[in-house]
Each structure stands twice: as C-alpha cells, then as structure tokens.
Amino acid sequence: MILNVNDINVYYGSFHVLWNISLSVNECEIVAVLGPNGAGKTTLLNTIMGLVPNKDGLIKFKDKVINNLKTFERVSLGISLVPEGKRIFPELTVLENLIAGSYINRKERGKMLEIVFTLFPILNERKNQLASTLSGGEQQMLAIGRALMMNPRLLLLDEISAGLAPKICEKVFGTIKKLAEDRSILIVDQNVKNVLEIADRIYVLREGRIVLHNYAESITEEDIIEAFFGVTL
C-alpha cells in the first residue's frame, strides 16, 4: 500500500466537508475518486497534499505518517499533485515550468525532460514560449509534465479533463494509463466514462462521504448513478 488514508475528517471553519474518509492506493494502481460537484473530491486531494489540514485520522505514505508535514515536505517524499486549474507559472517559459518541477529531482532532470517531451511533443515545440500563451489543453499537458519531472511514486490528478476537447482528453487519459506502469495514480474527475476506462478501483464520494467502493470491472452503471444521486433506481 503506497497511500493509506485512514478515517480523516476535514472542516472548513465549522463546516464539516469530509466525513470519516478512508481510502488506499497500491503500487502501480490507478484509483479513481468520482462524485458530483461539491462532493469534496478536490478537498480530499488537497488534504492528502497538506494544503488543507485534517482533524483526526491518519495519512500514511509508504508507511510513513505524513499528517504533520508541510506540503513541500510531502512532495519531497514522492507525491505530486496536478492541481485543479492547472496552476502553471504564467510568467515562466514551458521549459522553466518543467525545470521548476525538477526542483527536488535535479539529478534526473535530463532523463525526465526526455520522457515528458516524448509524451507531449508539443511541449518541446513550445519550450521557450511563456506558459501563459499556451492553449488550455497545452497548459494541462504542461501541468502534468511538470508534476512528472519529480518522478513521483504517487501522482494525484485533479480534474484534468476540465475544459479539454474530447480528442485531447482521450489522448491524455491514454498517457495516464501508460504512466501507471511505473507509479501509482489517484485521479479525481467528473468525466466518469474516461476514468472508468483506465481505473482499477473506484471510490464514489458524495457530500463528503464515500458511498461506493469497488473494482472498476465489478461496477455497474446503476451502481454509479445511484451513488451519484443517492437514490435507488
């Protein structure tokens, strides 16, 4: 088990956002967290990264408790997040963005750059352009490439299909599947179909609670709809 989230509760002020959440990710596995808007999926990823504090419960990465570590400390252990909204550095070039991504992995910079440019050739073409001049899809690819530069053991992906054209979406998801050969992936997305095609295990989060947890191949369409809406069909 590379990531173990055990019974965490998260509050925004007095608002109880996540209720007793437990989940796990194993080596070289793709785990998906699905759910309607406002369910708390982004909050969950942000909590794992330490951008949001959790009250009680434990978060363990590679069997090490990381609850009390600051975000940058967790990152240096080998967890990387592609955040919602991409958050690329607008006034750095594509190449500089990727170099920023290699901040804690300087030795492998050359090797990882090659991997990223092979996965996303367009980034190589535009490597000296300012990141803010890229299209939405290209920025998403840059955000993923940047997160890969540190060669993480666990890659968290937050809503990477948002605003992407369907063709590019398929391409990106295909790339994700390939990446899982060497690392674990925890993906959060609203686009159920694309995610189901690549995930090994699924959690469905609704109103801050896990309402469904199963292997992707065992899940039916009814299961998902019921989990999303909270009604039995």
């Binding site: 990264m49 951008l51 600051k70 975000t71 940058f72 990152v75 240096s76 990387s80 997040l81 955040p83 958050r87 690329i88 550095f89 607008p90 006034e91 750095l92 920023a100 991504g101 901040y103 804690i104 940047r146 997160a147 540190m150």
Partner: peptide, 11 residues
C-alpha cells in the same frame, strides 16, 4: 507567481 503551485514543486 503562485506560492501554492510552488509548494507542490517541493519548494
């Protein structure tokens, strides 16, 4: 430019 994204880079 983005201190949250920087934290996510391990900075």
């Amino acid at each position: 430019q983005d201190w949250i994204a920087s934290q996510l880079m391990g900075i």
